[in-house]
Amino acid sequence: MGGQLVTSTWKPRSEPMGARRFRRPCDYDAFVPDLIGEVQFNLPIDIAADFDDAVSALNDLQRNDLSLLRPLAHLLMRTESIASSRIEEVNVDARRLAHAEARQRIGRNVGSQAKEVISNIEAMQFAIDCAVNVPQVGLTELLEVHHRLMRGRLNSAGRFRSSQNWIGGNDHNPCGADFVPPPPEHVDELVDDLLAFCNSDEMPAMFQAAVAHAQFETIHPFEDGNGRTGRALIHIVMRRRRLSEQVVVPISLAFSRNRRAYAGGLVAFRSDDMDEWLATFADAVLQSVSTAARYVELVSELLGGWRERLRGHANPRSDAVAWQILSELPASPVLNRADAIASSDRSSRAVDQGLRQLEAAEVLIPVEEPPSRHRSWEPAGLLDLIVALESGEDTRLG
């Protein structure tokens, strides 16, 4: 991606901060990328073939039984959000997050890092909903994604930065930074141009998602939260272009497993080496679809085992609430009574009976005693499966 360097002089803040060398004026170069709508792109044949493979694999994934994909979709979005947060050094594994989500749903306090990942999930869900429910994704929607992600942690949540930011180097000035994004006065025009690009239907969708993400990260329009917002933008484009109508594939999981290639691809994009970034992106999509397909396979096996346990223990009627709860368990790594009642159209008494049957059959494992209306359960084996898949293990159910 072409652009120009703009040289500016950093003026130290008035308050004394850091060593003396950080308090002296210094020159730095900020990179202002070309407007993306004015660039002519040529997609190499081999990378185009990789993108075709990724699209084909994604289509194959979404041909699975929708009754399985629907509860699994939330599980995959959680995995994407956890991995996207991990890239930013916000480390909460699937088990901790699931228990934090369950506590938050009943009004209990959760840790700051878990709360941050939960905000990422909410921002991602909002982004996906926008891609489905609005004809074009505009500035209002983009700012709201960032607001949902960063509210309570950043005063400027949902607003573009008004000062210069930078990547790498030191915390005091951009002189010697690895990369200095465009000055703030360029942000509005660059983002407007990027959104017009995202709303176009005149290019291959996978290519569009790749370029949109890299351009967003180059602009770095927010004071903080750019990486996670930019990775949400990938899914906005893919959902809007109907590449991923049923699931959010965990692309960030592939990025987090190979951060050097991810960062290197973004650097290459800014250095006008588009091919390296596109190849990195295509590989990440292929990996993420493979992971999602593995989720489908293993969760399907797990559901089969749960059904056998319930059938062998209580064998309730086909219309019993226990079966309804069981079918939704992949979406609930930790389930509480209120969750079960909310997701059911049955009476609380029927739900309680279903929960007792599932617990007695060891489909649900209690994680909070004593008995109360706030009891919680883990679906047997589900969190172990998620943790193993996120760590890259090739899990087989015993």
Rank of each mutant, 00 (worst) to 15 (best):
V6T: 10
T7H: 13
S14H: 14
R23G: 06
R24L: 11
P25C: 07
C26T: 01
D34H: 11
I36N: 05
D46G: 02
D50N: 10
D53H: 11
A54V: 03
A54G: 06
L58F: 11
D60W: 08
L72F: 03
L76Y: 00
T79H: 14
E80Q: 06
I82F: 07
S84W: 07
E88H: 01
E101F: 12
R108V: 07
V110I: 12
E116S: 15
V117C: 05
I121R: 07
V134A: 05
V145M: 15
H147V: 09
R148M: 03
A157D: 01
R159G: 11
R161Y: 10
I167V: 04
E189S: 15
N199P: 08
S200V: 04
P204L: 01
Q208V: 11
Q215A: 01
T218W: 08
I219T: 06
G230I: 02
R231T: 01
L233H: 02
H235R: 05
R239C: 07
E245V: 15
S256K: 13
R257M: 01
N258L: 04
S271G: 13
D275W: 07
E276K: 04
L278Y: 05
L298Q: 08
V299N: 00
E301A: 07
D319F: 10
V321Q: 00
I325Q: 00
L326K: 03
P333Q: 03
R346D: 11
R349L: 11
A350H: 08
A350Q: 12
A350P: 12
A350K: 10
A350T: 12
Q357P: 04
L358E: 08
A361N: 04
E369F: 15
S372Q: 01
E378C: 05
